[in-house]
């Protein structure tokens, strides 16, 4: 059973979530930030587990990046 990728608000604490992500990068060099981002994505990807959800999320991220 494939769950839908949620694209509506899904957290009770959006400001807190955003802050955790930004704080992860505190005092990191750009290179370290890239490394931390990669780790965060891998950890979250494993937590989500469902490859279809991850594929959809990746497709949206890419599409939105290329949309200028």
């Amino acid at each position: 059973m494939t769950e839908r990728l949620i694209l509506e608000p899904n957290t009770d604490d959006p400001d807190g979530v955003y802050q955790f992500i930004i704080d992860m990068h505190k005092d990191l060099s750009e290179e370290e930030s890239h490394a931390a981002n990669a780790r965060l994505i891998l950890i979250m990807a494993n937590h989500i587990g469902d490859e279809n959800i991850i594929a959809k999320a990746a497709a949206i991220a890419r599409k939105n990046t290329l949309k200028k």
């Binding site: 490394a35 990669a38 950890i43």
Partner: peptide, 16 residues
């Protein structure tokens, strides 16, 4: 970067 992240994480975390 992702490849190295996987390898570094692997020391401590089974998922990686």
């Amino acid at each position: 970067i992702f490849r190295d992240a996987v390898l570094e994480l692997s020391r401590d975390y089974a998922f990686a």
